[in-house]
Nucleic acid binder design. Structure first.
Lengths: 339, 339
DNA sequence: CTGAAAGCGCTTACAG
DNA sequence: CTGAAAGCGCTTACAG
């Protein structure tokens, strides 16, 4: 109609003509999967570069039934924890020659709409970072045999491979750590919505271990994983009766809330940390190491987790029928100065 | 060969057969660009949903010569400034029905390799977030008439549309602001490598305006846009002779370095901010608002900039021949508590 | 090792 | 409004 100027695109037919070979041969040279005589390869490559030929990945995808596209679906990445994961994924996938079709989920665009798009683009696999996925979707994926890997979330579906920290164990470790250092009053700042399963696991581990140690009364305050909600949570805690004793410790289910909590305690209540109240976070984001915080936190072995996630993905793509299931990773407490 | 189980894919031919229409009609119904009798539409849609048909976007791309794919190339997104931009872009593009082919540049994978991939996937446009792009590449893009939009960077190429803050003007404003509040000794923390043009513009505006106001001696310390480098820079500054007078002010070319500088001054030198030394940052990232910092900074009108960037892109995609050039945006100083 | 040919799943003139 | 047919740019058996 109009603006169809990219008609000048050079195709394998053009290269073939110039190199005096068949189009199939050009294809063979570029796909690199067949044996072609060296002299022919040279002629083709010369012709190709003279013409500025670049194989059309779309056409290749259509015919080879493989797009080399991996859909990466992530929750809102303004949390540095997620952006560093995204970085890690991007690097690994790029190095493996895969392209990333990128989707961010948020409140407006649910995953279901996104999912339809993903399917239309015939991606080779789906890598989901900490976003909630319904069982219907994972079932649909297994029906069309689309490999799914979920990072930082556990999924019961048998066709999904999920990579997750052992949140319950980590939280138990935090309980031990805190109790061992003599704290007597405990609170947990978590969430109960989107990221709920993770937060719930951490809460469970924390309270259950504390109960075993004889501390049955653990406060729970609900936040939403932001700095602001951590501040609010701390206020709520400090304003409530019964949490004004000494030896108090607060465990937040991510660093952002932990830092918000610290700032509320310090700047709004004039409390000292860890003197008046201890704070422990989760994730070990870069900001927690900043001098103003020096947050003691739980560190997930992200690199190792990403390695496993990506290599599993690659195996699946190579047709190796690895099964679903969950891989849980052990975390460790990163001791800094807030407890 | 093996594992080719997705042969079960339902195509428009299957739908056509079941709906007793031609394949072309199915295509017309799904592309929504032709007038089809309502009764036919209904029959097709019924058949499609009974079969679980989903149009193949790859095949569509091949034939329509439009992939609906936008390549988004961003620098390392662990800096929250970039992740929020990425969020904004993702939302806008998704809402416009575009898919994102995502690339992260870093030191290992230069942009040139990435660029080849981008071209193979026949993306409709290229959106570059603050990454350095060579003139050869922009020229290649204009040759194949691939629209390019660059965010947060200025490019001289006439075929590229760039969106950028007016860094020089903003830095001049900071100079005025600081001088107006009585500061007498000034330093600038910038960089000279990758992001150099931006940092250089800010530096130029800052020093040139200060010179006009009678302050010819502005210290320069080089960082690399990280928190750590801000700390180092501040140490360097404080250890050097001549910057130990009162009324000192430091302008950092991003918030991360500003916060590092603050922490060094406060925690390592026992200085108070802004009492002993003022600090101003750039970007207005979320962390700067945290109670421990309350950083005075320069705020870029990101939302407006993203609106312009994306709507320009859409216009280009609709064939409207908008020209290249640079759109500069006015920033404003976000007064908080560090100056 | 190489060519001729069919086919991937769509879109889009061209005729009715 | 709809169908028959060509074609998008590749890959891949099938024969040499």
């Amino acid at each position: 109609m109009e603006a169809r100027k990219s008609e000048n695109a050079v195709t394998s037919v053009d290269v073939a003509r110039r190199a005096r070979v068949s189009q199939a041969t050009v294809s063979r040279v570029f796909s690199g999967k067949s044996v072609v005589r060296q002299g022919t390869v040279d002629r083709v490559m010369t012709a190709a570069s003279e013409l500025g030929y670049r194989p059309n990945a779309i056409a290749r995808s259509l015919t080879s039934r493989r797009t080399n596209l991996i859909a990466v679906v992530s929750v809102d990445s303004t949390h540095t924890f997620y952006s560093s994961i995204l970085n890690g994924i991007s690097g690994r996938l790029t190095r493996a020659g895969k392209q990333i079709l990128f989707f961010l989920t948020d409140f407006e665009a649910g995953f279901d709409d996104i999912f339809q798009q993903v399917l239309q683009y015939k991606v080779d696999a789906l890598l989901i970072v900490s976003a909630a996925v319904s069982v219907e979707i994972t079932e649909e994926c297994s029906r069309i045999s689309l490999p799914v890997v979920i990072f930082n979330r556990q999924i019961r579906s048998s066709h999904v491979f999920s990579i997750c920290s052992d949140n319950r164990a980590a939280a138990r470790d935090v309980a031990d750590y805190l109790a061992g250092r003599g704290y007597k009053a405990f609170a947990y700042i978590g969430s109960d919505r989107r990221l709920s399963d993770i937060s719930a696991d951490r809460r469970q581990g924390f309270t259950e271990r504390l109960a075993e140690l004889g501390f049955g009364d653990v406060r729970f305050v609900c936040g939403n994983y932001t700095y602001e909600s951590g501040r609010t949570a701390m206020r709520e805690l400090l304003d409530s009766a019964g949490f004004d004793a000494g030896s108090r410790a607060v465990f937040a289910s991510n660093d952002l809330m932990a830092m918000g909590a610290m700032d509320a305690a310090r700047h709004e209540y004039g409390l000292s940390i860890p003197g008046d109240i201890a704070v422990v976070g989760f994730d070990a984001i870069g900001e927690g190491a900043w001098k103003s915080y020096s947050l003691t936190t739980v560190e997930q072995p992200i690199d190792k987790m990403l390695d496993v996630a990506c290599s599993h993905l690659m195996k699946r793509l190579d047709g190796k029928e690895t099964d679903g299931g969950t891989r849980l990773f052990r975390c460790k407490i990163l001791e800094r100065a807030t407890a």
